[in-house]
Amino acid sequence: MRVAMFGYQTWGHRTLQALLDSEHDVVTVVTHPKSEHAYEKIWSDSVADLAEEHGVPVIIRNRPDDEELFRLLQEAAPDIIVANNWRTWIPPRIYNLPPHGTLNVHDSLLPKYAGFSPLIWALVNGETEVGVTAHMMDEVLDAGDIVDQRAVKVEPVDTSVDLFHKTVELIAPVTIGALDLIASGQTEFTRQDRSQATFFHKRAEEDIRINWDWPAEVLERLVRAQTSPYPNAFTFHRGKRLEVMSAVVSEGRYGGTPGRVFYREGGAVVIVAGADARTGLNHGLAITRVRTEDGRELPASEYFTSMGGYLTPRP
């Protein structure tokens, strides 16, 4: 099939590479300009560069809603559009333009985790599986019929970086598998159960601020989700920002007030956690490594020279 590809960052790059390696013919590529957004500078392999290396025409757009783009797509005459990590709304006259419509590739197990940063949100929420879904695009974002979907297990110590590498390897088989089904003439696919749908916004500063009322188990997942090169989860100590680079759930149970710098456990420093920490039934968050406001990285056991005082969400 003749394929037009909409994509951005490493997800789009892997999709384009899969298409270039397949029997399908990539006739044009649409991608975004480079961005300074913190999350969009990560995994930023260039779709434009890859397309140009293979002689594929490239169109740069923030939004795909102008007459020139529509005309160029008409002239390219694709049989289908494939999209992955396209960051803005695609209007119906674009996604319905090819005879086979538009196949969107999304890094979650739809209908759950539609929208943005699905791997990070899924890890914070303690999901046991993540994956990649190829679905037909319709008027509701990430809601169309599922053509192909594959999952990988979330291990207890996985970070968001681990999950990225696991799921990015699924892009090629899911994309080409879905295209081959469509090319074979199949038109009936799996409807999404919209009662199970969840939709998430982009990650931002407020989403990585540590709330010590959360249980230690959730905070430990937040730290793993916000591992480098993503912005690290942070708190404040004595009025200065402190990033938590690594942590585990404490072995012991610690009672008191959430945020209290309380106890040395091995090489870690335990912070009291959980809204009901007063009961003494909770585990704490055992911080193992931190980064200070001036950029120093050091073990928590060296940073916290004495116990006592509090970590707070704001200065």
Rank of each mutant, 00 (worst) to 15 (best):
R2I: 04
F6G: 13
Q9T: 14
Q9K: 08
W11L: 13
D21Q: 04
D21I: 05
E23Y: 02
V29D: 01
V30G: 12
P33Q: 02
A38R: 06
Y39H: 15
Y39F: 15
Y39W: 15
E40C: 12
K41N: 08
K41V: 00
W43V: 00
S44M: 14
S46F: 03
V47F: 09
V47L: 15
V47Q: 12
L50V: 08
A51E: 02
E52Y: 14
G55L: 09
P57H: 03
P64S: 04
D65H: 12
F70N: 15
F70H: 15
E75T: 01
P78D: 01
D79Y: 09
I81K: 11
N84I: 05
I90R: 14
P99R: 15
T102H: 02
L103S: 03
H106L: 09
L110G: 03
Y113D: 10
F116D: 01
S117Q: 05
I120H: 04
W121M: 15
L123T: 04
V124H: 07
N125L: 05
T128L: 05
A134H: 00
A134M: 01
H135G: 06
M137L: 06
D138E: 03
E139T: 01
L141H: 05
L141V: 03
D142S: 07
D145V: 08
V152F: 00
E155N: 01
P156S: 07
P156H: 08
L163S: 13
T167L: 03
I171D: 12
D180M: 07
D180G: 05
D180I: 13
I182R: 09
A183E: 12
S184L: 09
T187N: 11
F189C: 01
T190K: 06
R191D: 03
R191K: 07
D193H: 08
Q196L: 13
T198F: 04
T198R: 03
F199V: 02
H201I: 15
E206N: 08
N211C: 07
N211A: 08
W212H: 04
W212E: 04
D213I: 13
P215F: 06
A216W: 00
L222V: 10
T227C: 10
S228Q: 13
Y230V: 06
P231W: 14
F234E: 09
T235F: 01
F236G: 14
K240S: 10
K240D: 10
R241T: 00
S246C: 09
V248K: 02
S250V: 06
S250E: 04
R253G: 00
R253K: 03
G256Y: 07
F262V: 02
G266L: 13
G274V: 02
A277I: 00
R278P: 14
H283S: 00
A300G: 12
E302W: 05
F304N: 08
S306K: 09
M307S: 09
G309E: 05
Y310N: 12
L311V: 03
T312S: 13
P313G: 09
R314H: 13
